[in-house]
């Protein structure tokens, strides 16, 4: 007997239309009262991809691919330590902080890449975002741009440390989002003006959902650059920043 590779054709138009509008698992059929084997396997594959995205370390090839000048770490000890003690993901290791200060003299904009909760997101999207972001920042004329630098086991709050270490006026952090079952490769770009210890989420802006089915990476990069320009011009970011 032949094998059906895609059961979509059996659906009525209306169900197919609804499916096409969302990544959620709707109208997936059933076997008796249970999910079909194919759907169950698909869900387990997606779940495994999400777990891998959280636990995998960023590769050294990735550091080169992105042209990162520095490979830094936060105070969290490895992925396990990062997951068990999240606040440490906001603080750079003292020795890495010193390296950063020494390597990056005063700049207007610092670009950084962090793994966050999905190294898969950083590995997939950052190479697509960075070249456009750097070109666009140059076109916008935002002054001296430093980076990109890599931060392992990073949370968004590490921007404050990055800002203080480099005296950058604006920090742009590409960071992997918590993976879900629809995608494990979604990236966010956080941008903050004058990030210093004590700054909160309310003082940053974010472009989120950058992935294959979300905002195109190149579009997000170009948008991020014009926000950076706007923040430098207005001297503000977060809820007070009106793009």
């Amino acid at each position: 007997m032949g094998r059906i590779l895609h059961a979509d054709f059996r659906l009525p138009d209306a169900a197919r239309e609804l499916r096409s509008r969302t990544g959620a698992r709707i109208a997936v059929g059933r076997a008796g009262t249970r999910p079909t084997t194919a759907e169950l396997l698909k869900m387990r594959i997606d779940h495994a991809a999400a777990c891998d995205a959280v636990r995998t370390e960023l590769s050294t090839e990735f550091v080169q691919l992105c042209g990162c000048s520095l490979d830094l770490s936060t105070q969290a000890e490895g992925r396990e330590g990062y997951l068990l003690n999240p606040p440490l993901g906001r603080l750079l290791r003292p020795e890495d902080r010193a390296r950063l200060t020494a390597a990056v003299p005063a700049c207007d904009v610092l670009v950084a890449v962090g793994d966050g909760l999905s190294s898969a997101a950083a590995q997939t999207q950052a190479p697509l975002v960075l070249p456009v972001l750097l070109s666009a920042l140059e076109l916008e004329g935002v002054g001296k741009v430093a980076g990109p630098v890599l931060v392992r086991n990073a949370r968004v709050g590490v921007m404050n440390d990055l800002g203080e270490a480099t005296q950058a006026r604006v920090v742009v952090l590409l960071v992997g989002e918590r993976p879900g079952l629809s995608t494990a490769e979604s990236l966010s770009i956080y941008i903050g003006y004058d990030p210093r210890p004590g700054r909160t989420d309310a003082e940053r802006n974010v472009l989120s959902n950058i992935h294959a089915a979300g905002i195109p990476p190149a579009e997000a990069a170009a948008q991020a650059a014009s926000w950076v320009k706007g923040m430098l011009d207005k001297g503000v970011s977060g809820v007070d920043f009106k793009p």
């Binding site: 076109l139 195109p216 579009e219 170009a222 948008q223």
Partner: peptide, 9 residues
């Protein structure tokens, strides 16, 4: 598609 800003770069 949503690529206007990128294309402008």
């Amino acid at each position: 598609s949503d690529l206007g800003k990128a294309f402008s770069v």
